[in-house]
Design a protein around this nucleic acid. Structure first.
Lengths: 194, 194
DNA sequence: AAATGAAGTTAAACTAGATTAACTTGTTTA
DNA sequence: TAAACAAGTTAATCTAGTTTAACTTCATTT
C-alpha cells in the first residue's frame, strides 16, 4: 500500500520534517478490509482513527426498532471513525462498515496520543480537520430543517457525485432521512420535470 | 467582570503556567452585550470566538423565505461563534444574538492564531473542545432522523433544563425543527398524559 | 386605563413523506 | 435453469407535522 497520498494530505495542513514523517509512519498501521467488513461495531470501543487510502465506508446507527440510519459516507482522502467513542474510549454509538474493499491508514488511540506529544504540530492538523467536520455537520442540521427532501437530494448529488454512483440508493435515502420509496419518487419527478 | 470561571474552564483541559495565564489574559477582550444585540450577523465575517461568562445566546439562520432556524443555544461556560466564518474569515452563514444581557471573553482571529503559536497547548484545548462539539452535532443529526418531535423535545428538556426555562418556546420549536403550534400541542399532550 | 403588540394556545384543513404491498430487474446460489 | 434474494419502482392509503386563523395572556407604551 502506498502512503504518499496520506503524506500529501498531511502536508496540506502542516509541514513535517523528514524525521517527523518517519516517526509518524512508524506509528501507523496500513490495513485492508474487504467489502462488508466492519471497522467499528456499535457498543464496541472504537480503537482507531482511520484515513481512507481507497474504498468507501458508511457510518450508521441502528435504532431500538432495528432501523438503520446512515450518519455519513466516507471515501478516499477522508477520515472515518466513531469519533465520540475514539476520543473517550467508551462504547461506540455507530457502526462503520466498508461498502467496497477499503485500504486504511490506522491510528490507535495510544499512538495518536503519543504523536500529539512528539509532534505537537499534529494537534493543529487534527484541530483544523475537526473544525471543518464540525462546520459541515452544523450546516447539515440546518439543511435538514430548512430544505425539503428533493432539495436535500439535489445538494447531496452535486456535493458528492462520486458517492451517489457508488452507493446503493436505499443507503442514500437513509442518509437523507427519507425512505427508499420516497427517494424513488423524487428521482422519477426529477426525470419527468425536464 | 471576573475571568476566574474562564481560567478554571481552561484548566480543566490544560494546565497553564502563571506566565501563560498572563499572556492569555493579555490577548482576550472582556465585553458586555445587551439583550437582543448581535454578536455576529449573517453575511458579515465573524471576528471573534466567544466564551460566555454569563448570559445566553442563540445561533440561527434566516432562510430565503425569511424563516428563522435555530442552530443552537449557548449559555454560561460554553462557546458561541459562527465557527465556519471565524476559521475561514469569510461571510457568516449564521447570526448570533443575545437572548439576555451577556458577558463574553472574546478572542479575535489574529490573537487566537498568535496564542496557538505562543502557547501550543491551546491547540490541544481547542482540538478537544471542537471534538466534543462535533460529536454532539453528529448525535443530534441522528436524533433528528430517528426520533419523533415529542421524543426530541423530552430529550432537549432533560439535557438542557436551564435553557428550556430561559428561552421563548417558539425558539425551542425552531431548534427542534417544528412549528410553535406543534410544540404547543406536544406540551399539552405531555400534561394530559399523566 | 386603553391600546398595541409579542408570545402562546387551540382547532380545522391540508401536505410532505411514511407505510404497506405488489411488481420488476439483476445477481447469486443450488 | 430455476429458485432465492437483494435492490429498486410504483401506487394506494395513512399520519406526523404544517398552515391558517381565531383567540388568550401578559407586558409595554401612550
Amino acid at each position: 500500500m502506498n502512503t504518499s497520498p496520506f503524506l500529501k494530505y498531511i502536508n496540506k495542513y502542516v509541514n513535517l520534517t523528514p524525521e517527523e514523517e518517519t516517526l509518524l509512519l512508524s506509528k501507523i498501521v496500513l490495513r485492508r478490509y474487504l467489502k462488508n467488513q466492519y471497522i467499528v461495531q456499535q457498543n464496541d470501543v472504537c480503537r482507531s482513527a482511520n484515513y481512507i487510502l481507497s474504498g468507501c465506508t458508511k457510518t450508521f446507527y441502528v435504532d431500538s426498532e432495528g432501523q438503520e440510519h446512515v450518519v455519513m459516507f466516507s471515501i478516499e482522502d477522508w477520515w472515518t471513525s466513531d469519533l465520540g467513542s475514539f476520543i473517550t474510549q467508551t462504547p461506540a454509538d455507530f457502526n462503520v462498515q466498508c461498502l467496497e474493499n477499503t485500504q486504511l491508514v490506522q491510528f490507535t488511540y495510544e499512538n495518536l496520543e503519543e504523536l500529539y506529544v512528539e509532534i505537537p504540530k499534529l494537534e493543529r492538523l487534527f484541530r483544523k480537520i475537526i473544525e471543518r467536520a464540525f462546520v459541515a455537520s452544523q450546516k447539515r442540521i440546518i439543511r435538514n430543517f430548512s430544505l425539503d427532501a428533493k432539495e436535500r437530494y439535489q445538494i447531496f448529488k452535486s456535493a458528492y457525485p462520486k458517492i451517489d454512483q457508488r452507493v446503493p440508493q436505499y443507503m442514500i435515502a437513509s442518509y437523507l432521512g427519507i425512505t427508499k420509496e420516497f427517494l424513488s419518487k423524487i428521482k422519477s419527478q426529477l426525470i419527468h420535470e425536464q
